[in-house]
Design a protein around this nucleic acid. Structure first.
Lengths: 336, 336
DNA sequence: GTTGACTTCCAAAACGTTTTGGTTGATCTT
DNA sequence: AAGATCAACCAAAACGTTTTGGAAGTCAAC
């Protein structure tokens, strides 16, 4: 509650000395330092954050912009990731503020507001688009940032991402090896880098196998989107015997479609993200996930290293995808 | 990028006048004000946030502490709520920082850190416990706060909550009216107010109907917890014919247990929260939800009113619970 | 031509830190 | 005993705003 001035006065010392004592500088005698520490503790003194920020020219804040797709903010494990990230950042004296994009404003406007008011020291971008205007903007302003998901920008920037192309390619090939010849893809919005990448992975595998790539539908990355896409694919005359879904949420929606159509219980399916709920669906959901431990922590440490000035080229993590096999990916042995 | 001083110099005006022109004070002539506005826009001037905060003695920040149950941070719609809240707060110039509790630290320590460093103007508490030490602390420090969920504290504080007791009582009575006589409850951790309240609602109904209240198991508020609790109840000789589950996540876990045991497909079940995924489970999940529109917005506006100094007694919202009927709650007509 | 009211502007203080560039004495060197 | 070194402390500036308490000029009234 008290401030430095009052504390100094009560100790008969100067503000300078008290400040330096608390910060552990060597030009304060050990006895004085201890005396100051005691008094500070006693008085419940904590430096005023705004004052320190002003003086140090650091906001001690990092913002993460939240995409605001109507009705659906993102995968269910998003908050967990942010929480892990915030925890790691807090250990370095940085707090994480969440910045949802208000309706009628662009994600770029959001960034501008935080950056131009010098409200943040750095930014976190999630759900990056293939062409993401935020990247160019932050780069031009010289604000450190890390993205969760790559972009197609020529600008080098720090990112952390899963190798979705490889994952979806391998998943598709695995279906091929199991005898499937009509393998469909339920794709997410192609403006997102991750969704495009996953589709490319599926396409690459289909091309490898000399199979047509028309069994694909793009939909919203939600259960409802997955449900609708699956229904549409299943109603085609050449309906697929296996489905590769861009996300677990879409896959869960697709599962419902499979339950609703004749013979749907023979169709195999795989998702991506490894949501905890996947173990409890019917059938249980086979899926994929990024390797590499706590995503939030990695995200935070990349950001700290970016702030510290390490060059972006050395701060790009592309993690392998691993399969999490449950029941949904081997429900039949189709005859070709 | 520029600051007030440079802007003033380039305009041949004083810092005072420029500042007041931008803030729209009446003691600046209209022509000057316009000239200043143009120049500010041109120079891309935005006031430095730290400086304003220091001067105005406001942090312009609100923190929300995130509970850190191992492996599970909370219901899937949590982030959506926070996002709505942050959006509303941002319109009032406040940013929302998320404060996960690091391992080895208590939620109280978290609060202390934010409050004592004058880092925040107010706090949001979610997942309140029946005896929540954070409430006493914040009250003693005079920091405005709103809780999501009531507490058993004698202190009056602003809150927003659903009437879980009534909801669970009615849900249980509905099962009774449908002919069920062995109605079980899968309870959440009783330290949480909401979990205790919901259990009390179930108990009240059971007492009303002169039924025993031993068909109850407390578990972690996760799919896994619900699964384990349901398995245990279903293995009892007097196993329930209907289950009232504290949360949708637990209910979804319980659904898997029902699929795994003989006759489980005849057991009725209801959850609470109305997670979007409930429409896609097998069977689709009957559930309940709090009425009252966008929770995040209400939360934010309660907080703003608390900051404005309205007395807490007038800032307590207890919302009714409404049923969302799908398939899981009427799977059989049990004979008594 | 003095008074008061009004408009338009501004110098300086204040917010609470951190940091710069010292000063003061004591101790050590030669 | 003069000079150099060192330990321990401090005054003042700086960070960039907002706000207080005027000052200077204009105009109308008498």
């Amino acid at each position: 509650m008290a401030n430095l001035k009052q504390l100094a006065q009560s100790l008969g010392l100067s503000i300078t000395t008290v400040s330096r004592a608390l910060d552990g500088y060597a030009d304060v005698s050990a006895t004085t330092r201890e005396r100051v520490r005691q008094a500070a503790k006693q008085a419940g003194y904590h430096p005023n954050a705004s004052a320190r920020r002003l003086r140090k020219q650091r906001a001690e804040l990092v913002a993460v912009t939240l995409p605001s797709e109507p009705g659906h903010i993102g995968p269910a494990h998003f908050l967990e990731m942010l929480s892990g990230c915030a925890e790691h950042l807090a250990a370095a004296g940085l707090n994480l503020v969440i910045a949802p994009v208000p309706s009628g404003e662009s994600e770029l406007d959001m960034c501008r507001r935080f950056v131009d008011g010098q409200r943040v020291d750095a930014m976190l971008l999630v759900r990056t688009k293939r062409h993401d205007e935020r990247v160019e903007f932050l780069q031009s302003r010289g604000i450190p940032f890390v993205t969760n998901g790559r972009t197609e920008s020529t600008i080098q920037h720090a990112f952390i991402d899963g190798d979705g192309l490889s994952g979806f390619r391998r998943a598709t090939l695995r279906f091929y090896d199991a005898g499937h010849r009509r393998i469909g893809h339920i794709a997410g919005p192609q403006a997102y880098f991750f969704a495009h990448e996953r589709k490319k992975g599926w396409e690459a595998a289909m091309n490898d196998c000399a199979l047509p790539t028309d069994l694909c539908i793009e939909q919203a990355p939600t259960e409802q989107g997955g449900y609708e896409a699956a229904l549409e694919l299943l109603n085609r005359p050449d309906r697929p015997t296996a489905l590769v879904c861009a996300t677990d949420e879409m896959a869960i929606g697709a599962l419902r479609a499979l339950r609703e159509v004749d013979g749907g219980d023979l169709i195999s399916l795989i998702g991506h993200d490894d949501l905890p709920i996947g173990a409890f669906t019917s059938p249980s959901l086979s899926t994929m996930r990024m390797t590499g431990g706590n995503l939030g922590h990695s995200f935070a440490s990349l950001l700290l290293r970016t702030i510290a000035g390490e060059p972006p080229e050395t701060l790009q993590e592309l993690h392998a995808i691993e399969f999490v096999d449950r029941d949904s990916h081997h429900r039949s042995s189709p005859v070709a």
